[in-house]
Protein backbone atom coordinates (compact mmCIF):
# COMPACT_ATOMS: atom_id res chain seq x y z
CA UNK A 1 0.00 0.00 0.00
CA UNK A 2 2.63 2.52 1.02
CA UNK A 3 4.67 1.34 -1.92
CA UNK A 4 2.31 2.55 -4.57
CA UNK A 5 1.60 5.79 -2.81
CA UNK A 6 5.23 6.74 -2.85
CA UNK A 7 6.00 5.70 -6.43
CA UNK A 8 5.56 8.78 -8.55
CA UNK A 9 5.33 7.89 -12.19
CA UNK A 10 3.02 9.46 -14.73
CA UNK A 11 2.32 6.01 -16.11
CA UNK A 12 1.39 4.63 -12.74
CA UNK A 13 -2.29 5.43 -13.26
CA UNK A 14 -2.47 3.15 -16.29
CA UNK A 15 -1.25 0.02 -14.58
CA UNK A 16 -3.47 -3.02 -15.05
CA UNK A 17 -3.94 -4.88 -11.79
CA UNK A 18 -5.75 -7.96 -10.73
CA UNK A 19 -8.71 -7.12 -8.59
CA UNK A 20 -10.20 -10.59 -8.38
CA UNK A 21 -8.70 -13.73 -9.82
CA UNK A 22 -9.42 -17.39 -9.86
CA UNK A 23 -6.33 -19.61 -9.80
CA UNK A 24 -7.99 -22.98 -9.49
CA UNK A 25 -7.12 -25.82 -11.89
CA UNK A 26 -10.49 -25.73 -13.61
CA UNK A 27 -11.41 -25.11 -17.25
CA UNK A 28 -7.99 -26.18 -18.38
CA UNK A 29 -6.11 -23.96 -15.94
CA UNK A 30 -7.69 -20.86 -17.42
CA UNK A 31 -6.66 -17.76 -15.57
CA UNK A 32 -9.96 -16.08 -14.85
CA UNK A 33 -9.32 -12.66 -13.43
CA UNK A 34 -11.21 -9.41 -13.11
CA UNK A 35 -8.68 -6.67 -13.72
CA UNK A 36 -9.29 -3.00 -13.15
CA UNK A 37 -9.58 -2.37 -16.89
CA UNK A 38 -12.11 -5.18 -17.11
CA UNK A 39 -14.06 -3.65 -14.25
CA UNK A 40 -14.08 -0.23 -15.85
CA UNK A 41 -15.04 -1.65 -19.24
CA UNK A 42 -17.91 -3.46 -17.56
CA UNK A 43 -18.98 -0.30 -15.81
CA UNK A 44 -18.84 1.53 -19.13
CA UNK A 45 -20.93 -1.15 -20.78
CA UNK A 46 -23.51 -1.03 -18.02
CA UNK A 47 -23.55 2.75 -18.14
CA UNK A 48 -24.13 2.80 -21.89
CA UNK A 49 -26.83 0.20 -21.56
CA UNK A 50 -28.58 1.83 -18.61
CA UNK A 51 -28.47 5.30 -20.13
CA UNK A 52 -29.78 3.95 -23.40
CA UNK A 53 -32.56 2.20 -21.54
CA UNK A 54 -33.52 4.85 -19.02
CA UNK A 55 -33.18 8.09 -20.92
CA UNK A 56 -35.95 7.21 -23.30
CA UNK A 57 -38.68 9.35 -21.73
CA UNK A 58 -41.04 6.37 -21.81
CA UNK A 59 -41.14 6.40 -25.62
CA UNK A 60 -43.03 9.69 -25.63
CA UNK A 61 -42.92 11.76 -28.76
CA UNK A 62 -42.24 14.96 -26.88
CA UNK A 63 -38.63 14.67 -25.69
CA UNK A 64 -37.19 15.75 -22.39
CA UNK A 65 -33.63 16.84 -21.67
CA UNK A 66 -32.33 13.30 -21.19
CA UNK A 67 -33.76 11.81 -24.34
CA UNK A 68 -32.60 14.80 -26.37
CA UNK A 69 -29.00 13.93 -25.49
CA UNK A 70 -29.50 10.43 -26.85
CA UNK A 71 -31.27 11.77 -29.90
CA UNK A 72 -28.49 14.23 -30.66
CA UNK A 73 -25.89 11.45 -30.37
CA UNK A 74 -28.04 9.40 -32.73
CA UNK A 75 -28.33 12.28 -35.18
CA UNK A 76 -24.59 12.98 -35.04
CA UNK A 77 -23.56 9.38 -35.71
CA UNK A 78 -26.26 9.05 -38.34
CA UNK A 79 -25.01 12.08 -40.22
CA UNK A 80 -21.45 10.73 -40.02
CA UNK A 81 -22.49 7.34 -41.36
CA UNK A 82 -24.64 8.69 -44.16
CA UNK A 83 -22.05 11.29 -45.03
CA UNK A 84 -19.04 9.02 -45.09
CA UNK A 85 -20.49 5.78 -46.40
CA UNK A 86 -23.28 5.53 -48.93
CA UNK A 87 -26.53 7.32 -48.18
CA UNK A 88 -28.54 4.14 -48.60
CA UNK A 89 -26.20 1.18 -48.28
CA UNK A 90 -24.28 2.64 -45.39
CA UNK A 91 -27.19 2.41 -42.97
CA UNK A 92 -26.41 -1.25 -42.38
CA UNK A 93 -23.27 -0.23 -40.52
CA UNK A 94 -25.05 2.32 -38.37
CA UNK A 95 -25.60 0.20 -35.21
CA UNK A 96 -21.95 -0.81 -35.19
CA UNK A 97 -20.85 2.79 -35.59
CA UNK A 98 -23.26 4.02 -32.94
CA UNK A 99 -22.06 1.48 -30.40
CA UNK A 100 -18.44 2.21 -31.33
CA UNK A 101 -19.00 5.92 -30.78
CA UNK A 102 -20.86 5.54 -27.52
CA UNK A 103 -18.48 2.92 -26.19
CA UNK A 104 -15.37 4.98 -26.89
CA UNK A 105 -17.02 8.17 -25.64
CA UNK A 106 -18.15 6.63 -22.38
CA UNK A 107 -14.77 5.03 -21.80
CA UNK A 108 -13.06 8.35 -22.47
CA UNK A 109 -15.40 10.13 -20.09
CA UNK A 110 -14.97 7.49 -17.40
CA UNK A 111 -11.26 8.14 -17.70
CA UNK A 112 -12.02 11.79 -16.98
CA UNK A 113 -13.62 11.01 -13.63
CA UNK A 114 -11.13 11.74 -10.86
CA UNK A 115 -9.40 8.70 -9.35
CA UNK A 116 -10.70 6.43 -12.06
CA UNK A 117 -9.10 4.57 -14.91
CA UNK A 118 -8.95 5.37 -18.60
CA UNK A 119 -9.58 2.15 -20.48
CA UNK A 120 -9.13 3.72 -23.93
CA UNK A 121 -5.59 4.79 -23.07
CA UNK A 122 -4.55 1.17 -23.53
CA UNK A 123 -3.01 0.46 -26.90
CA UNK A 124 -4.02 -3.17 -26.84
CA UNK A 125 -7.68 -2.27 -26.55
CA UNK A 126 -7.69 0.43 -29.20
CA UNK A 127 -5.50 -1.62 -31.52
CA UNK A 128 -7.85 -4.55 -31.21
CA UNK A 129 -10.74 -2.28 -32.12
CA UNK A 130 -8.95 -0.64 -35.04
CA UNK A 131 -7.53 -3.92 -36.39
CA UNK A 132 -10.98 -5.41 -36.24
CA UNK A 133 -12.47 -2.50 -38.14
CA UNK A 134 -9.82 -2.44 -40.87
CA UNK A 135 -9.70 -6.22 -41.19
CA UNK A 136 -13.48 -6.31 -41.41
CA UNK A 137 -13.43 -3.63 -44.10
CA UNK A 138 -10.82 -5.64 -46.04
CA UNK A 139 -12.87 -8.83 -45.82
CA UNK A 140 -15.90 -6.82 -46.90
CA UNK A 141 -14.02 -5.52 -49.93
CA UNK A 142 -12.82 -8.98 -50.91
CA UNK A 143 -16.26 -10.52 -50.55
CA UNK A 144 -17.84 -7.72 -52.56
CA UNK A 145 -15.29 -7.23 -55.32
CA UNK A 146 -13.17 -10.39 -55.31
CA UNK A 147 -9.68 -9.82 -56.64
CA UNK A 148 -10.69 -6.44 -58.04
CA UNK A 149 -10.24 -5.24 -54.49
CA UNK A 150 -6.55 -4.75 -55.30
CA UNK A 151 -7.48 -1.88 -57.62
CA UNK A 152 -7.81 0.07 -54.39
CA UNK A 153 -4.02 0.26 -54.37
CA UNK A 154 -3.79 1.74 -57.87
CA UNK A 155 -4.43 5.47 -57.94
CA UNK A 156 -6.48 6.68 -60.87
CA UNK A 157 -4.56 7.99 -63.86
CA UNK A 158 -1.01 7.38 -62.71
CA UNK A 159 1.83 6.81 -65.20
CA UNK A 160 2.84 3.23 -65.76
CA UNK A 161 6.43 3.78 -64.74
CA UNK A 162 5.44 4.98 -61.29
CA UNK A 163 2.93 2.22 -60.76
CA UNK A 164 5.01 -0.18 -58.64
CA UNK A 165 6.11 2.61 -56.35
CA UNK A 166 2.64 4.01 -55.93
CA UNK A 167 1.12 0.60 -55.31
CA UNK A 168 3.77 0.04 -52.68
CA UNK A 169 3.00 3.36 -51.02
CA UNK A 170 -0.74 2.74 -51.13
CA UNK A 171 -0.30 -0.72 -49.68
CA UNK A 172 1.83 0.58 -46.84
CA UNK A 173 -0.67 3.35 -46.14
CA UNK A 174 -3.42 0.76 -46.11
CA UNK A 175 -1.52 -1.27 -43.57
CA UNK A 176 -0.76 1.85 -41.57
CA UNK A 177 -4.45 2.48 -41.15
CA UNK A 178 -4.60 -0.36 -38.68
CA UNK A 179 -2.03 1.20 -36.46
CA UNK A 180 -2.88 4.85 -36.94
CA UNK A 181 -6.54 4.45 -36.06
CA UNK A 182 -5.89 2.83 -32.70
CA UNK A 183 -2.76 4.77 -32.02
CA UNK A 184 -4.52 8.09 -32.44
CA UNK A 185 -7.15 7.34 -29.84
CA UNK A 186 -4.90 5.71 -27.26
CA UNK A 187 -2.11 8.25 -27.68
CA UNK A 188 -4.47 11.17 -27.26
CA UNK A 189 -6.04 9.83 -24.10
CA UNK A 190 -2.74 8.57 -22.71
CA UNK A 191 -0.91 11.81 -23.38
CA UNK A 192 -3.70 13.88 -21.94
CA UNK A 193 -3.81 11.95 -18.71
CA UNK A 194 -0.02 11.89 -18.49
CA UNK A 195 0.16 15.60 -19.10
CA UNK A 196 -2.36 16.30 -16.38
CA UNK A 197 -0.50 13.99 -14.03
CA UNK A 198 2.91 15.52 -14.67
CA UNK A 199 1.65 19.09 -14.43
CA UNK A 200 -0.24 18.33 -11.25
CA UNK A 201 2.91 16.75 -9.81
CA UNK A 202 4.81 19.96 -10.51
CA UNK A 203 2.03 22.08 -9.12
CA UNK A 204 1.70 19.97 -6.03
CA UNK A 205 5.41 20.27 -5.34
CA UNK A 206 5.30 24.00 -5.86
CA UNK A 207 2.24 24.51 -3.70
CA UNK A 208 3.48 22.43 -0.78
CA UNK A 209 6.87 24.04 -0.54
CA UNK A 210 5.86 27.29 1.11
CA UNK A 211 3.11 29.76 1.85
CA UNK A 212 4.11 32.15 -0.92
CA UNK A 213 4.62 29.26 -3.33
CA UNK A 214 1.06 28.18 -2.70
CA UNK A 215 -0.18 31.30 -4.42
CA UNK A 216 2.50 30.92 -7.08
CA UNK A 217 1.11 27.45 -7.78
CA UNK A 218 -2.25 28.91 -8.72
CA UNK A 219 -0.90 29.82 -12.17
CA UNK A 220 -0.01 26.25 -13.16
CA UNK A 221 -3.31 25.22 -11.58
CA UNK A 222 -5.10 27.45 -14.06
CA UNK A 223 -3.19 25.71 -16.84
CA UNK A 224 -4.20 22.33 -15.51
CA UNK A 225 -7.81 23.40 -15.40
CA UNK A 226 -7.56 24.60 -18.98
CA UNK A 227 -5.99 21.29 -20.00
CA UNK A 228 -8.78 19.45 -18.23
CA UNK A 229 -11.25 21.29 -20.39
CA UNK A 230 -9.18 20.37 -23.41
CA UNK A 231 -9.23 16.75 -22.32
CA UNK A 232 -12.99 16.85 -22.09
CA UNK A 233 -13.11 18.12 -25.65
CA UNK A 234 -10.60 15.50 -26.78
CA UNK A 235 -12.76 12.77 -25.26
CA UNK A 236 -15.58 13.75 -27.60
CA UNK A 237 -13.45 14.57 -30.63
CA UNK A 238 -11.48 11.33 -30.54
CA UNK A 239 -14.61 9.22 -30.38
CA UNK A 240 -15.96 11.14 -33.35
CA UNK A 241 -12.70 10.87 -35.29
CA UNK A 242 -12.53 7.14 -34.67
CA UNK A 243 -16.02 6.67 -36.03
CA UNK A 244 -15.44 8.95 -39.02
CA UNK A 245 -12.28 7.09 -40.01
CA UNK A 246 -13.89 3.69 -39.49
CA UNK A 247 -16.71 4.80 -41.78
CA UNK A 248 -14.30 5.99 -44.46
CA UNK A 249 -12.40 2.68 -44.31
CA UNK A 250 -15.59 0.74 -44.69
CA UNK A 251 -16.50 2.98 -47.61
CA UNK A 252 -13.15 2.16 -49.24
CA UNK A 253 -13.91 -1.52 -48.87
CA UNK A 254 -17.39 -1.03 -50.32
CA UNK A 255 -16.74 1.33 -53.21
CA UNK A 256 -13.01 1.07 -54.00
CA UNK A 257 -12.56 4.86 -54.26
Amino acid sequence: MSNFINVISPLDQFEVRNLLSLDAPILGNLSLSLTNIGLYLTIAGYLVFIIGLLSSNNNKIVPNAWSISQESIYATVHSIVTGQINEKNGQVYFPFMYVLFVFILVNNLIGMVPYSFAATSHFILTFSLSFTVVLGATILGFSKHGLKFFSLFVPAGCPLALLPLLVMIEFISYLARNVSLGLRLAANILSGHMLLNILSGFTYNIMTSGFLFFFLGLFPLAFIIAFSGLELGIAFIQAQVFVVLSCSYIKDGLDLH
Binding site: S200, L221, F227
Partner: peptide, 9 residues
Protein backbone atom coordinates in the same frame (compact mmCIF):
# COMPACT_ATOMS: atom_id res chain seq x y z
CA UNK B 1 -0.94 15.11 -7.04
CA UNK B 2 -4.10 13.26 -7.87
CA UNK B 3 -6.12 15.66 -5.70
CA UNK B 4 -5.02 18.52 -7.90
CA UNK B 5 -6.13 16.63 -10.99
CA UNK B 6 -9.41 15.86 -9.26
CA UNK B 7 -9.79 19.51 -8.30
CA UNK B 8 -9.19 20.71 -11.83
CA UNK B 9 -11.49 18.10 -13.34
Amino acid sequence: EESIVALSL
